[in-house]
Design a protein around this nucleic acid. Structure first.
Lengths: 228, 228
DNA sequence: TTTCATTATATGGTATGCCAGAAACCACCG
DNA sequence: CGGTGGTTTCTGGCATACCATATAATGAAA
């Protein structure tokens, strides 16, 4: 006999105003086209306080957190500004990403189950052959999910945390670079090789492939993307 | 004729109470033996406010920053606690460190000058031969400076920033592990090999050596250090 | 004596007011 | 007309009071 039991558990878990304000601000900034010329990069504490309907205290805490994350810069008595990453900083983020994801790939070969690794196929096989152009609009997402999956399978929470922090910054750039047929197609080839190495439990090779794959992005940005 | 001119320029550049409080708190926590049994891990906002002589507002901002860094945990209406890292978390930190520093080593072979690389010798040669036991008390520092130097020479600010954040956590553990003759001695051998690879501009090898060197620490901690 | 409901206290969350400094504005002087 | 010094305004830093809730303390009932 099945024992009757209470189902409810999740609890409402209301977040603090601070964290909700933080999320709202982060989303708002993420939605802005901050790299367009003439974009308004200035934020105003009191105005935001009114717009969000919260007092300045939780707002300031949220802003302080965003500042530490590098999304905004608070200049005492001068204003709060959205940070535009320089090309150098973008390149550094990609470099760090390469280092962490390649390490994650190594870990995957050590700790992930065969089933988990097999699951990566789903993120790659969709874009077989000529299907790339057709689904190109969705490739950016699939691309991101593939990399996120590797990091998740590594089981290393810290790598996930750090790359997640970087992701907010990199996304805008990534979307700018992925829509070039050759990069997408070659990217898929790389992904397939990576999956093969993971399945073969070849840590060294998987690590190297992932690193080189991401360093290609770095090189591409270095050569072709104009930011400053 | 020499033109007479005003010499003063540095300006005082007083830091905000927030950042000074942050530094003071971080130093205070770092000085605590948080891994001793029975250590007081609880912090009190109002008490600290009195001790530091600042109001709760800048103190809270400093605490929020420390929380994001993972040094403390703020439980709403329950208290603020210094975080004791679990063994798993420590291992993850070392893993991330390995990934980042090995990437830094690769970068060093690409961007550092010969003179800069040669400067690493000073941090290694001091502990030649049997001098290890004699200066062992200072080896921990030299060890740390060696790794920091590689990261600095890589020129990647982001790697420096992230590892610096990890360092606070790892230091306590590192001090516990380094005082074992064999580890120190073998560590120095590794360091010399690393310097050689850097001088030879062998990026692949330098990267691999640094990674393996740090993963040795990981393995050591995994096997011999008891935390939980 | 134990248990449970009630009350008191402690603690972090939030709102708000004041302050110092920087920028913008303006009038005055050369 | 240009520049210089003063004044106003705006902005973030800081202090403080109040609030909601978790925990501890208390006491009454069983």
């Amino acid at each position: 006999m099945v024992k009757a039991r209470l189902e409810i558990q999740p609890i409402e878990e209301v977040q603090s105003l601070k964290s909700r304000t933080y999320d709202a601000l982060k989303a708002a900034i993420g939605a802005m086209k901050i790299y367009d010329a003439g974009a308004e990069l200035r934020l105003d504490e009191r105005a935001l306080s009114l717009q969000f309907g919260v007092s300045r205290t939780p707002l300031r805490e949220a802003l302080a957190q965003l500042e530490q994350e590098g999304l905004v810069r608070i200049a005492p008595r001068r204003g709060i500004y959205i940070v535009r990453k320089t090309k150098t900083e973008i390149l550094e983020m990609i470099t760090v990403w390469a280092a962490l994801e390649s390490m994650a790939a190594r870990l995957v070969t050590e700790v992930a189950s065969d089933a988990e690794i097999a699951g990566l196929h789903d993120l790659v096989d969709i874009f077989d052959n000529a299907a790339i152009e057709k689904y190109m609009s969705g490739y950016s997402d699939a691309n991101i999910r593939f990399h996120a999956a590797i990091i998740a399978l590594s089981g290393c929470k810290l790598i996930a945390e750090i790359t997640n922090g970087l992701f907010t910054h990199v996304r805008a750039i990534r979307q700018r670079t992925i829509f070039e047929k050759d990069r997408a197609r070659r990217s898929i080839v790389d992904h397939k090789e990576i999956v093969e190495a993971l399945e073969a439990r070849n840590g060294e090779r998987a690590e190297r492939l992932v690193r080189e794959h991401t360093l290609k992005l770095k090189q591409h940005v270095e050569q072709f993307v104009q930011l400053d």
